[in-house]
């Protein structure tokens, strides 16, 4: 059984952790979760990214869901947004590709050009 006690321990750990960091959100990842994105497998992409973030302990990454943006033919679509950098949009995502983006782009800072469909300021 998951208990609230467990959550309190996480809170204590997180509070220590947050004190050491300057900014709380370094990268924002946005997964397109409109009807067509869902139909094309966006939920599994979301799951893979959340799994990587939680396994790697990426406390400065926030993963959110959004609606459609007119890129239906390239769904599932994922935006990686970093302060002061162009927004990178990845298309035709799969859980494996998404895991690669977490490892290469989000952790190591190298854009995965193979999957980029758009980049803008």
């Amino acid at each position: 059984m998951k208990t609230l006690e467990e959550l309190r321990k996480i809170r204590e750990k997180a509070q220590q952790d947050m004190k050491l960091r300057e900014s709380n959100t370094r990268v924002k990842v946005v997964v397109g979760m409109g009807t067509s994105g869902i139909a094309m497998g966006a939920r599994d992409v979301m799951k893979a990214i959340l799994d990587e973030v939680s396994k790697r302990g990426l406390a400065d990454v926030v993963v959110t869901q959004t609606g459609e943006k007119g890129l239906s033919s390239m769904e599932p679509v994922v935006d990686v947004i970093e302060e002061g950098k162009p927004v990178v949009t990845y298309g035709n995502m799969t859980p494996d590709k998404a895991r690669r983006i977490v490892a290469e782009h989000i952790v190591n800072g190298r854009i995965v050009n193979d999957y980029v469909v758009a980049a803008q300021r």
Partner: peptide, 26 residues
């Protein structure tokens, strides 16, 4: 309930994601 327990810690914190995932699956 989770957020109240967490105080200011965001629900997006890695260990919290794992917690929610386990709790829901359970």
């Amino acid at each position: 309930v989770i957020k109240e327990e967490l105080g200011g810690i965001p629900i997006t914190y890695p260990d919290v994601i794992a917690y929610c995932n386990e709790a829901i699956n359970e």
